[in-house]
Amino acid sequence: MSLEKIKKVSGRSVYVPGNDIDTDRIIPARFMKCVTFDGLGEYLFYDVRKDSEGNDKEHPLNEPRFFGASVLISNANFGCGSSREHAPQALYRYGFRAVIAESFAEIFFGNCCALGMPCVLATQESIKALTEIINAAPKTEVSIDVVNSEVCAGDLKFPVEIPVGAKEALTNGRWDPIAELQEAEDSIDDLVIQLGYLKKS
């Protein structure tokens, strides 16, 4: 299986401020009643974006100047809470291809990586500087250099942290691990028996 090597992601961005934005907020549980992930994009951030009648509320994603953004910016502990992959799937299907935040919850981070959607960590100051630019000039192209762990937006340039495992996986086109996991078939068979999970047949 050959996957795209994700070395750089660029596009317009939008800032959704807040610490601890949890996956229930990203995709409310009631929209998880589905047997496929198709169509989840529509419900991204639904309860903070829409009122009870389904009309738009004040939210960055509802502002026309941020329409078409593909890089999401947020603060600390983004994606905490439930392990639902519906959250990264909703982001992806809405059109996001990368997230910049101060930190990420681990399961969320791994789920995003497995979709080929980089999550990169920036300092609070960098995020502040970046969002000032974006809010003043929403058309600014934000570009994430995964190889060199760097983000550029207009004149602003700052380093970001990308955990080495994720970086390797993304840049080498191995972000979906299934093929590599399948290679080890024989060792798995041995270990399952050695550890007593299955009896030798």
């Binding site: 992930f37 392990s83 639902r84 992959e85 519906h86 990264p88 399961i107 791994g110 789920n111 497995a114 979709l115 979906d176 691990p177 299934i178 590599e180 996991l181 399948q182 080890a184 078939e185 798995i188 399952v192």
Partner: peptide, 16 residues
């Protein structure tokens, strides 16, 4: 784990 990893466990009994 996420759903993609559920797939990984079903298919290989392992995760990364």
């Amino acid at each position: 784990i996420g759903t993609t990893q559920v797939r990984d466990v079903l298919a290989t009994q392992t995760i990364a």
